[in-house]
């Protein structure tokens, strides 16, 4: 268990960063509205918090606080609203540090008739507009793949993969970089293409800012992944998360879609050059 980050009495809020955060959010919403996206409000208290082997949801009442709005938003897609987004607090237990907060803010959006590559220009446009809204230099983005980062030899073992990721790879991803095509076993709810998943992450300053993919549209395959994730969690001594029947049913119904979640706190950190997530949030 990670203890809560110590709250220091008199921890000063930073008006400059709160203003920047508000301006970034306003800019994101205005760009998305102009692109025809509808903002919806997902529930925060849910029965099934995630399909994740390595994320701990925070139990609350008879359920959990959501770790992302993904399941609810896919039900919205299936209901015939294919171009939607949500801006919401999400919760991940046991994560705290200068780059992690137990509660943080996520913007998750879905783009229909699209695959993961179509997310890149959309998100770059959102970030460029947000940078302009707070008068910081326009970021320049590049692209690479997981295979290229590992020099063509992607570790097959997860412990080896993630240890090398955090020690050798993510510290080098300082300039804004899209990393494409993760191993199939890290697919989450994305479509597979051969032995890779159509999934991408955006890195800035060595930090993951966004995670997106071509959305899996196969309820049976999704049910299999829930079972696999539950097995992995049991094997790691963690209790499995309940299977979400709503998202399984929705996955057979929504059109071809790509979706991406952007960490708002880290985006504000990256745009303002702030090293500690606590400085861009109002601490509890």
């Amino acid at each position: 268990m990670h203890p809560r980050r110590a709250h220091v009495a008199g921890d000063a809020l930073n008006p400059r960063l709160l203003r920047a955060r508000g301006a970034v959010l306003a800019s994101l919403r205005s760009t998305l509205a102009a692109e025809g996206f509808l903002e919806v409000q997902p529930p925060v208290l849910v029965q099934s918090p995630a399909l994740e082997a390595n994320i701990e949801a925070l139990p609350c009442a008879d359920g959990f606080l959501h770790t992302s709005p993904e399941f609810a938003l896919k039900r919205v897609l299936a209901a015939g609203l294919p171009r939607v987004y949500a801006t919401t607090p999400v919760f991940r237990n046991e994560e705290s540090g200068r780059h992690h907060a137990r509660e943080f803010t996520m913007l998750e959006l879905y783009l229909h008739n699209a695959n993961y590559l179509d997310l890149i220009p959309l998100v770059e446009g959102l970030i460029v507009s947000a940078a302009s809204a707070i008068s910081v230099a326009t970021p320049v983005f590049s692209r690479t793949t997981v295979a290229a980062l590992f020099g063509g030899d992607v570790p097959g073992d997860d412990d080896d993969f993630f240890r090398r990721w955090v020690t050798e790879i993510d510290p080098t991803l300082t300039a804004p970089t899209w990393v494409l095509d993760f191993p199939a076993r890290h697919a989450a709810l994305s479509e597979l293409r051969g032995n890779v998943s159509e999934r991408l992450e955006l890195y800035v300053g060595g930090l993951e800012l966004a995670n997106g993919y071509s959305e899996l549209r196969d309820g049976a395959e999704l049910r299999r992944r829930f079972a696999e994730s539950a097995r992995a969690r049991r094997a790691a001594g963690r209790s499995p998360h309940p299977t979400d029947e709503g998202v399984i049913a929705a996955s057979d119904q929504f059109p071809r879609t790509a979706g991406i979640a952007i960490g708002i706190d880290r985006l504000v950190m990256a745009l303002t050059g702030t090293p500690d997530i606590a400085e861009v949030r109002i601490g509890s």
């Binding site: 990670h2 994740e52 390595n54 046991e94 994560e95 705290s96 540090g97 200068r98 780059h99 992690h100 997860d158 412990d159 993969f161 993630f162 240890r163 990721w165 955090v166 020690t167 993510d170 993760f182 890290h186 989450a188 992450e201 993951e208 995670n211």
Partner: peptide, 14 residues
């Protein structure tokens, strides 16, 4: 020391 955790991965402390 620094807590680090890839979104889909396990947590580490550098």
């Amino acid at each position: 020391f620094q807590f680090v955790k890839p979104g889909k991965g396990t947590a580490f402390t550098r």
